[in-house]
Write a protein that binds this DNA or RNA. Structure first.
Lengths: 147, 147
DNA sequence: TATTGTTATACTCTATAACTATA
DNA sequence: TATAGTTATAGAGTATAACAATA
């Protein structure tokens, strides 16, 4: 019973490599983000709200591929934690504009700095040029896909 | 209500880009693999069995980060589909050696060819050099992590 | 005592149907 | 009629506890 399995074939597959790399990056992210009690999806939602004050729930859903019923739960939790506030939308009576509270702003400022550090810790063995290249190629994958 | 949200910050994060790229690749993979009725995890398990005949359930779990109780369900399904067979392990009475049936071999031969085509369709806008670089950098991410 | 494989079950995440209020 | 937000719920995916058989 040889324990180091032959994974040579799987390693030729882009999907296998991309998934394992993404899992590595996300695992590191979760470790570091634990003190903030933010999962990756929480971070993404709150960061989008931070950089798009007044954004609606539906816009967040479209951008992050989250279904509206699930977003409701996230936003409810953020509101209980007093990280976000809701204001009536200026022109659309159905919608609600979301923004960070002062508390949310303080948290996300620290969390975004933490996220950057997390990234750096993962790619520290890549040269600066390799890091730029990796980001560029990853973007090329998902941006050219929707064409 | 501006619909194209400002995602500039998120796009600076490696995790965000890696996750989106991985989702793109996996979505394409699932589309193409649908005729074989194989999810990514099914493909990974069957491919490992194919290239490691006699492998045990526990070894597959270790390699793919799948918990034993969940693997039981997968293997049960494969057995019902007559894709794999179980033989008593030659030296360990507790364990079972797994291998593909002729039917499984036929299926996986086609599925692996399909997987390669799926990859190619995703990276077709990358030059050959870029493709090699991307794979190399992705491996560097998850292989250097465990050091 | 530790490990393989297994059952049963709990928990989390994601998806669907249907409703209300407004456009 | 279509859309934003919501509720309730179903389903898929993942995790924990405990067991029998073997090492």
């Amino acid at each position: 019973m040889k324990d180091p399995l032959d994974t040579a074939y799987l390693e030729t597959l882009l999907g296998y490599n991309a998934r394992r790399a993404a899992l590595t990056i996300i695992a590191r992210f979760m470790e570091r983000m634990a003190p903030f009690d933010l999962r990756p999806v929480d971070f993404s939602v709150l960061s989008l709200i931070r950089h798009n004050p007044g954004v609606t729930s539906r816009q967040l859903c479209n951008e992050l591929n989250i279904l509206p019923p699930n977003m409701v739960v996230f936003l409810k939790t953020f509101e209980k934690r007093q990280l976000i506030q809701r204001k009536p939308h200026p022109t659309d009576g159905r919608a609600t504009g979301l923004s960070l509270t002062a508390e949310g702003e303080t948290l996300m400022q620290a969390a975004e700095a933490c996220a950057m550090q997390s990234d750096l810790s993962v790619v520290e063995r890549l040269s600066a040029a390799e890091q730029k290249t990796l980001t560029r190629l990853l973007k090329k994958i998902y941006q050219t896909d929707s064409v």
